[in-house]
Computed example of a mutant assay.
Amino acid sequence: MIPLNAIRAFETTIRLGSVKAAAKELCVTEGAISRQIKKLENVLGLPLARRDKQTIAATALGNALAQNLTTALDLVDQSVSDAQNKSARIRLQVAPSFAIRWLMPRLDQLQKDLPLLDVRVTTTLLNNQFDHYSFDAGIIYGDGQWTNLNTIKLSNEYLLPVASPDASKITLENFKGLTFLHTTLDQRDWKLWVEKSNHDQAISLTGPTFETLDLAVRAAENGFGISLGDLSLIYDNFRTNSLKVPFGPILETGRGYYLVHEPSHLCGRAIDDFKHWLQPQSPIQTIDAETIAQNLGINLISVSS
């Protein structure tokens, strides 16, 4: 068997043009490099290099061999690098509602499609802030205006009223007497929806506040009141008839969920693999809000209109 150390020593010496440079790159002594080259010549029974006191040069045969070895060793290095990247770990920060409503049901498929990718999901209540010290990438909520981060939009936020299919009293006629479920103490989502829907803005939006959108929607599913849901995250509920839309409109807010990471992160290849898996099936690619609004018989409006 041809010794790999001898191959590496010979290729590096010819590529760099000196034993001294090869010794420095491979972190060995010059004497070790010379011995490895001689060993390769003995194993092959071929003259590969001409030497004098100061320099070493490849013979014609040695030069051809060195060029082929450079190509082969580059391929080996790239193959090892690819294997390391494909089996890399990604520490992923995810907004809770996106994690529960969209990502978790698809983790099994992710494992099947990218079995060597170790994605470690952590949810945090800092929906719109990325903790780049603790995580390699994040799926966070906002308008996409973060500095020093690469961003890819995964969903548009479409807010619409949702309730339990059994909640027969939740109708537009009873709007003023409904129990409104909130995700912020300032009730900003419902206030925005009421304003853009041309409802009476003086109406009392009485109701409890929940820590996440997912909790508010789950409360609505159980008949506790009416919540605003994000169409991108609750579309699966319509297909299973676990939620109903008692009235419209659907409001496009201009915000959404984004995949973010630092531009020069060391897990770049692993993040690219995850990104290429995520993008084609993300809500922004699969949710047609206009068609859904037409099918529901309600309007689709925008904050900007």
Rank of each mutant, 00 (worst) to 15 (best):
V76W: 10
V76P: 02
D77R: 15
D77S: 10
S79I: 04
S79E: 14
D82R: 14
D82F: 13
D82S: 14
A83Y: 12
A83N: 14
Q84V: 12
Q84C: 02
N85F: 08
N85D: 15
N85M: 06
N85K: 14
K86F: 11
K86Y: 13
K86C: 06
S87F: 07
S87T: 15
A88R: 01
A88E: 12
R89H: 07
I90R: 11
I90L: 02
I90K: 00
R91Y: 06
L92D: 05
Q93I: 01
V94H: 06
V94A: 01
A95W: 02
A95T: 11
A95I: 06
P96K: 05
P96G: 05
S97C: 05
F98T: 04
F98G: 00
I100E: 14
I100M: 07
W102Q: 08
L103I: 09
L103F: 14
M104L: 00
M104D: 06
M104V: 09
P105C: 07
R106C: 05
R106E: 09
L107D: 10
L107G: 08
L110I: 06
L110H: 09
L110K: 05
Q111R: 15
K112H: 13
K112T: 12
D113L: 07
D113N: 12
L114F: 08
L114S: 03
P115F: 06
P115N: 05
L116P: 01
L116W: 11
L117P: 01
D118F: 05
V119P: 06
V119S: 11
R120C: 06
T122G: 00
T122E: 09
T123H: 05
T123I: 07
T124F: 01
T124H: 00
L125E: 10
L126N: 11
L126T: 10
L126G: 09
N128L: 00
H132E: 13
H132A: 15
H132N: 13
Y133G: 08
Y133A: 13
S134W: 00
S134G: 01
F135V: 13
D136I: 10
D136F: 05
G138Y: 04
G138K: 01
I139G: 10
I140K: 04
Y141V: 08
Y141S: 04
G142E: 07
G142N: 10
G142T: 12
G142Q: 08
Q145E: 14
Q145P: 03
W146P: 00
W146H: 11
T147E: 15
T147H: 14
